[in-house]
Design a protein around this nucleic acid. Structure first.
Lengths: 222, 222
DNA sequence: ACTCCTAATATTGTATACGATCCGGAGGCT
DNA sequence: AGCCTCCGGATCGTATACAATATTAGGAGT
């Protein structure tokens, strides 16, 4: 296997975890898919122990469902769960944006501008993976702006779970995403707490609406 | 529905996890204490594998800190972290109370009244463990009232981490706790969303203030 | 054909064994 | 003496082996 590039201070558990996580978030592992320990350990060339730890970890993050003696499956994101996730995420992203606007730290703002630029180009011509990565990066940095590590951690968890569903939203929605990101950043820079909060909340809700439409269309087609 | 203490078919991992968790929450394992896998496995009469899984799980919940190749320790709750936890918890408990008031489901209300009664007697004459358990039960049921399982999960995690710090708050504070619980429940029953939210937020903040005072006093004494 | 029981299989849960890494102290070098 | 290097113990990380449990397939009885 090609495990050369990285300085390799990473344990096999972590590597396996990241590998499986990216496969889930990229859709190569679809909701409901079984994650059999033997198969994964064979595929990834490690024993079952790191695979188990990875699955436990992903289960704690909410990406994987773990049933005793029955094994792990990729979580199925029902509309019900999406609604619940969005409700909580909107609340937290709103508060986070408010705090970010209150501080509007210059260094963080600089980083956000950078990510925003990358995002805008990727929205036109980037791969899906790139878009996923940059979206995560923008929200991660925005999360750092509030200087509340607990809030950041919780939001990250929720974001990953929603992105499980929203990944299918396609390029048209990606452009909207980055327009909205730009608006949020602008409000943060201006120190306009209420506007930043409102835009962040709307951003989450808009992504959810796009998902709902998309989802309904898919169901009709199927 | 809910898996109350099942008779026996609980895996060793889960048993070990609950055992360690309760020891942490009861203060028998103090912040900063090392959790060596060999020692724990010997003490609990199982191999290292379930112990490892338990520690990983507790780490995901935020009760244990895990450093690569250096082992696990009970998390130290700094005032900084407490402030962050409280900020997020207040926001979520507020929203939860608002939703609970909007629904004010009769069955949930009945259960909350029951827990409230138990809590009031325990606040006068119960053990610390009992108080911890009943406090968790009240918040758990209040969390169920919003019918948002994601919100419930997140709040539970935050609650456990704050209770790590707030456990030392003593009986006087316990009486206040249950007075405030009564107020929240009243507002929920009345369907007064704003009042319920406000009281829930204050409840979290008051517990934090009590902790801050207590903490400062302890530091002076030491 | 249908149902229930039983045995075979697939998969997870746990134990033991070994290798890797970190920490602290003994001994040599300047 | 002081600093550096190297060794040994402690502890974690991973592999392999075995036990426990769930799932499935097949057959006997009706």
């Amino acid at each position: 296997m090609s495990d050369r590039d990285a300085p390799s201070p990473m344990s096999r558990s972590k590597l396996v975890r990241e590998r499986i996580r990216s496969q889930i978030l990229n859709g190569r592992l679809k909701p409901g898919a079984r994650l059999v320990e033997d198969r994964l350990s064979a595929e990834l060339g490690v024993s079952r122990v790191p695979v188990r730890e990875a699955l436990r970890s992903l289960s704690a993050e909410g990406l994987v469902r773990l049933e005793p003696h029955r094994g792990a499956t990729v979580v199925e994101v029902t509309p019900q769960i999406v609604a619940e996730l969005v409700e909580v995420r909107a609340l937290l992203e709103g508060q986070n944006a408010r705090l970010a606007a209150r501080r509007h730290d210059p260094e963080i703002v600089r980083q956000l501008r950078e990510t925003l630029a990358h995002g805008n180009t990727a929205a036109e011509a980037g791969t899906t993976e790139e878009l996923t990565r940059l979206n995560a990066e923008f929200h991660e940095r925005l999360g750092e702006a509030s200087r509340n590590s607990v809030l950041l951690d919780v939001m990250r968890g929720l974001r990953e779970r929603t992105s499980l569903a929203f990944a299918i939203n396609g390029r048209a929605r990606a452009r909207e995403d980055w327009k909205e990101h730009a608006g949020i950043l602008e409000a943060v820079i201006a120190g306009d707490e209420e506007l930043a909060a409102l835009l962040a909340i709307r951003h989450v809700q808009n992504a959810a609406s796009a998902f709902a439409r998309n989802h309904a269309a898919n169901d009709d087609a199927a």
